[in-house]
Amino acid sequence: MEIKWYLFLSIILFCIGVAGALTRRNSIIVFMCIELMLNSVNLLLVAFSKMHLSIPGTSAYSAIDAQIFVFFIMIVAAAEVSVGLAIIVMMYRNTKSIDINFLNRLKN
């Protein structure tokens, strides 16, 4: 497979995530859209790591680094999700709503 197909797939997934984050008001769905974007980027990173190997004269280590990077992204995403969902729960408890527009309280 050529790299471009992975590229376009990642872009499509990422843009769907962006559109979802822009159009939805449910904070859980917005949050899921963000996860979607993260995953599209992960996919692209893995594809690049595989592409990297086909360039002559590169060592396998640099390709491995990319996948380690993806691994760490997953770690951070897991941590982020746990905190983010805790925030959503607290917000629901306080406002009886998970509408993202209720999160503008910081404004005042």
Binding site: I3, K4, F8, I11, K50, A60, Q67
Partner: peptide
């Protein structure tokens, strides 16, 4: 965003590089 990104990246010179999946990197 989709259009712009596609437009930007479709011109990249390494677009047609094949992935090498026969190594044991992953």
């Amino acid at each position: 965003l989709l259009i712009v990104l596609v437009a930007a990246l479709s011109r990249a010179s390494e677009n047609n590089t094949q992935l090498r999946i026969d190594t044991g990197v992953g």
